[in-house]
Design a protein around this nucleic acid. Structure first.
Lengths: 181, 181
DNA sequence: GGTTACTGCAACATATATGTGGCAGTTAAT
DNA sequence: ATTAACTGCCACATATATGTTGCAGTAACC
């Protein structure tokens, strides 16, 4: 592939991610326009609309996987791993705001990757409970869902907040809540 | 309106809310099929797709408004009001899972009602802070966003959890987090 | 029982999105 | 400088969703 072609490709993926997050029904024409290329050019890169969506999801999965790796969820101390994960995943969630859950039946391969990543986080939450960082009796599924929700909130409802501060806020709220002592 | 017609109308609204929440691009034909009526019947009730969406949003706004009223957010003690609100809003969020934010430019009237309801909740969060139920220095916008996120999580990721227990869980997580003391 | 309201079905027109192919022009790589 | 890759623009075919109309049948309401 030529260098300018590669630039166009990433532009389409990034524009697509932003538009599809706001409106999953965004047309290829709208994505092409946002990326500054012709509609037929997009069709040349991606055989179908599904293929484009798959490429966007793959890009998100790639970024998320790198964050999971670098957070050292199974080895680093829980507070360290948690913070590293949050600081890394919030920018990823902002850059690729698409919801990967709605791709399950369409793209089984991506769905599998997503499940694997989800399982790694589940395991981390279990370790967090096992090592006593969460209150005894805490439901792991609830803790996991709350963590995801806080990440989404920080990432998308406070898009201007810098990742380190957002990670602090999420971790603090997750562990201690907002109530007075 | 005849009684059977009213039944069909509510069936369309409820089926539409569920389908549109999963896929905002759901066709009128799919909604009609889910509601068990013909496509043309839906078109007779709702002049356009937009009109149907507006009706769904109105139904959600009506239910939410009732919850806000009955929670007595400005008068009841904060813990009582919070719990009443949560116990009421979670079923509403389940019955009308549509996201009302994406209707802003399309339906200015509904958007205004939504803003009014949002303002009532903002005021409640401020009161919660002013009366010392949240830690001093807590960002009201963050608290509000976290509360919304927890409601969504409890409502949609734990659809089988009964509202009183879900309200307990949300309130507890909101105020105290999940961390060990 | 008769009227009215409502529905399902079929047909139709329209708009929009997807996907393909050709062709001339431009630009990166050699 | 030449070649190959890539792009934009135009035209086309196809599919699907929206919205409308007419008509016959059914069920609620008086």
């Amino acid at each position: 592939m030529r260098a300018d072609a590669a630039r166009n490709l990433t532009a389409v993926l990034q524009a697509g991610a932003q538009l599809l997050a706001e409106d999953p029904g965004t047309s290829m024409a709208a994505i092409a326009a946002a990326a500054g290329v012709d509609r037929t050019t997009v069709h040349r890169r991606f055989a179908s609309r599904e293929a484009l969506l798959s490429a966007v999801f793959q890009a998100k999965l790639d970024s998320a996987e790198q964050v999971l790796d670098e957070a050292r969820l199974t080895e680093a101390p829980v507070p360290v791993a948690l913070h590293r994960y949050l600081e890394g995943i919030i920018p990823v969630s902002r850059q690729w705001p698409v919801d990967t859950r709605h791709m399950m039946q369409k793209d089984p391969e991506a769905s599998l990757r997503r499940q694997e990543q989800s399982a790694r986080l589940d395991a981390f939450v279990r370790r967090t409970i096992d090592e006593g960082y969460l209150r005894a009796g805490t439901d792991a599924a609830w803790a996991r869902a709350v963590l995801d929700g806080l990440v989404d909130t920080a990432a998308h409802k406070f898009p201007a907040m810098d990742p380190p501060r957002a990670a602090d806020l999420v971790a603090g709220t997750f562990l201690s809540g907002l109530g007075a002592t």
